[in-house]
Design a protein around this nucleic acid. Structure first.
Lengths: 156, 156
DNA sequence: TATTGTTATACTCTATAACTATA
DNA sequence: TATAGTTATAGAGTATAACAATA
């Protein structure tokens, strides 16, 4: 197995380069896993986002950090497969509300399973305690990204 | 701050969905950071790979999980900017050896710094001890991906 | 004949700009 | 006049297929 985890109390300064590259490689693995369920990475992100509830196009664009036309194209594909539903907002008829369909929920579940399977295969190369720490680490990043996004939404 | 890290001993089964999505979101942040140094994610991965030493085109294709023509196109751009050098292999003249130039090494260093900066901003939303665990987690994934790749190279 | 890498070509993705419809 | 979203269009990225050079 590996011995990376034996170093204790790592700091931001300690191994920034490896740290930076890990995220890039992890993403590629996710992309490969999503191929099996015929979903692109951005499409996967749309579905994941909509589990929190319906969202307007502008909200999707800013949260995914893509342009408005990209949202249209992305959602077109998902609507065509019956995974997402577009519904006009009755209060402001310029706005479009996006909702996850039941089929979309199942597709996301399948996608999560596919990605999980790949990450489990990778994590299998760690010792059990290291594995637990690796998974916990990713969950922490998720929480941190939420906090980061929220802070950005409030001020600059 | 967050409280995700308070759960102890997470397992693979505990929160697979969030775990799966964290990698996708992390990747997007990396992509955005790389925009500042005018490097695509795959180009960044090529530079990072070459710090381990020179590599043939076929090696790059398999390690990056992209097609041979993509390697050509990717490297064309890096060679054009003087970041990578192509050198014919004297032992097998069909092969091309790829090397990082000094300029390429500096570009990678800048790219790492840009990504690091973004990840530091995100990690700032965690408590110090959570932050250390998040970073350690990413380093563990890096090691696990190396082991996974190596295992794949040996057998199926 | 098999293999390494390149060229030719097509397809997908994403962005900027122009447009439509609401407000 | 400003905003939400779509359509038009162009540029980048990546893949499969065909090719050239070498083994």
């Amino acid at each position: 197995m590996t011995r990376t985890g034996d170093r204790r109390q790592p700091t931001v300064e300690q191994a920034p380069a490896i740290w930076a590259r890990a995220a890039a490689r992890l993403a590629k693995h996710v992309e490969i896993a999503l191929d099996d369920v015929e979903l692109s990475l951005p499409q996967y992100r749309v579905l994941a986002l909509l589990t929190a509830g319906s969202a307007a196009g502008s909200a999707l664009a800013s949260k995914l950090a893509v342009s408005p036309p990209s949202v249209t194209a992305l959602v077109d594909g998902l609507v065509g497969r019956g995974l997402v539903e577009r519904r006009p907002d009755p209060l402001d008829r310029r706005r479009v509300s996006h909702l996850l369909t039941d089929k979309g929920r199942r597709a996301l579940s399948d996608a999560d399973a596919a990605v999980d399977a790949r990450l489990v295969d990778i994590a299998a190369h760690l010792e059990p305690r290291e594995r637990a720490r690796a998974i916990a680490g990713l969950q922490l990043w998720y929480a941190a990204m939420d906090a980061y996004r929220e802070a950005r939404a409030r001020h600059g």
